[in-house]
Each structure stands twice: as structure tokens, then as C-alpha cells.
């Protein structure tokens, strides 16, 4: 079948305004949108820029807006867009570096803000730290995060409040707040408890809807809120 693509083009060094460019490409219904992008680039227009690597939804490189919805181009198949023109745009709110390639640094900074590493005060035992299966299960869903930024791109709150840390940073905060081995739980909860921290989320559920790894992001954020209210009773708000 023939697919029609409309792709966002912008080179901030040369172009004054972004524009959309149209391409037609032959594709099989079982192929990925990324396969189409590659075919366009390799056969028609090498000037197109986008990130990609593993091509099966593990590396998290090719998050973009596909017909208005944030998704990985390697996880969406042509057959899902039959008869439709496919519009590809960069992730919203992210600074465009070129075409579909965006600046991820602010996103990564947000995740680093909550210290996405295990903090322990005690010396490790000779063997592993013990953790029950129930304890491990608490983080089973959030460890699927691949840092693709689709959730943050899809979040309506981000457009109103660019200072909001965003859903991905909160997923990583959750990961360590609820890791039974971490010894900074109270401090982490305190760190989340500020106006641009965990609170701006008002349950739009867009992050949960778009997450390519099916992480219940909104639920995690609500759990963090409840945990703060439960654990930090004397807090001032």
C-alpha cells in the first residue's frame, strides 16, 4: 500500500519558521512507522533528521507525535493508520534541534533532580540485600521506564506549567521511594512535596494512555501524593 506522510521540518540554524513536508512511500501493513521514515530518508530525502536505535521499543530514542499522539515510531504499525495521512511531529514542549530531534537535557535534568539511584547508609552485606517478592513487586511496573519522554510530551499540565517536573521524573521518584532497599525514603518524599513537584498532576491520564511500556503513571503519581500525606503529617501546605 502507499502511505502519505506529512513531516515537521525545522532547522533552527537556517529556517525562520517550521514547515511540513509531504512524502509518499510504499509500505506493508505490518511494517513500523519507523520503517517508513527510514525508507523516506534512505531513498527520497537524506536531509530528514530523527533519532532511532533499537527499533523495538527498548532504547526509547524515537518518541515523537504521530497524528497528535506521543508514541514510539518503532512501536506503531502502518496498519493502524490505514487510509489515513500520517503526520509526524516532534514531542511537544521540547526544544526542536532539527526536524523530529529534540533537546532532551531538561527532561533528563528533571529525572536527575530526584536522584535516580539507590541511596543506602548501611554497608552492603557480603551477598545480596534481601528483598521480599512483595517488596520487589511494588516497583515491578515502574522499572519498565525507558526514558522515551512520551508521557512528559503528552502531559497537558506541562503546557500550562513548564516548571512542573513532569510524569517521567515522578515515575523515577516512585521507583526509589518504594524500593525497600533505599534508606532515604522520608527525604525523597519531602523533596517531592513542593508546588512544581508531585502536586500539579490533576489526573488527565494522558501519560498513562501514551506510555509505550504500559506503566500506570497517573496511579503512581497518586500513590506518591497519598504516601506524602500519610507519612509527612506535620508538613506545611
Amino acid at each position: 500500500m502507499e502511505m502519505k506522510f506529512k513531516i515537521f521540518r525545522f532547522d533552527p540554524e537556517v529556517d525562520e519558521e517550521p514547515r511540513y513536508q509531504e512524502y509518499r512511500v510504499a509500505a506493508d501493513p505490518a511494517e513500523r512507522i519507523l520503517d517508513c521514515l527510514n525508507r523516506i530518508k534512505w531513498e527520497q530525502d537524506g536531509t530528514l533528521s530523527y533519532r532511532m536505535s533499537c527499533a523495538h521499543g527498548v532504547c526509547g530514542s524515537d518518541g515523537m507525535r504521530i497524528n497528535g499522539t506521543c508514541a514510539l515510531a518503532c512501536q506503531k504499525l502502518v496498519r493502524e493508520y490505514a487510509d489515513a495521512e500520517v503526520t509526524l511531529e516532534p514531542l511537544p514542549f521540547f526544544r526542536v534541534l532539527k526536524d523530529l530531534t529534540v533537546d532532551m537535557n531538561a527532561f533528563l535534568e528533571g529525572i536527575l533532580y530526584f536522584r535516580p539511584w539507590l541511596i543506602t547508609l548501611s554497608d552492603p552485606p557480603e551477598q545480596e540485600r534481601l528483598q521480599s517478592q512483595e517488596e520487589a513487586k511494588r516497583v515491578e511496573e515502574v522499572i519498565r521506564c525507558i526514558l522515551c519522554a512520551c508521557c512528559t510530551g503528552a502531559c497537558p499540565v506541562m503546557s500550562e506549567n513548564p516548571n512542573y517536573v513532569g510524569p517521567a521524573a515522578l515515575v523515577w521518584a516512585f521507583r526509589h521511594v518504594f524500593d525497600s532497599r533505599d534508606e532515604k525514603r522520608i527525604e525523597r518524599l519531602n523533596q517531592l512535596d513542593f508546588p512544581d513537584g508531585v502536586w500539579p498532576c490533576v489526573n488527565h491520564f494522558e501519560c498513562t494512555r501514551v506510555c509505550p511500556k504500559k506503566i500506570p503513571v497517573t496511579k503512581c503519581i497518586n500513590t506518591l501524593k497519598r504516601e506524602i500525606e500519610k507519612t509527612l503529617p506535620g508538613r506545611s501546605q
Partner: peptide, 20 residues
């Protein structure tokens, strides 16, 4: 090497006794 990764925080699946 595996214990070192566990100490750094790698979230391994666990046995009923809580081991890796």
C-alpha cells in the same frame, strides 16, 4: 559482579527467601 550490581540498586526478581 552480580552482588555489586544488586548493591547499586539493580531491581532483580527475587526468590521466596528474598534472594536474587
Amino acid at each position: 559482579a552480580v552482588y555489586e550490581l544488586e548493591h547499586m540498586g539493580v531491581p532483580f526478581n527475587r526468590t521466596p527467601e528474598g534472594k536474587i
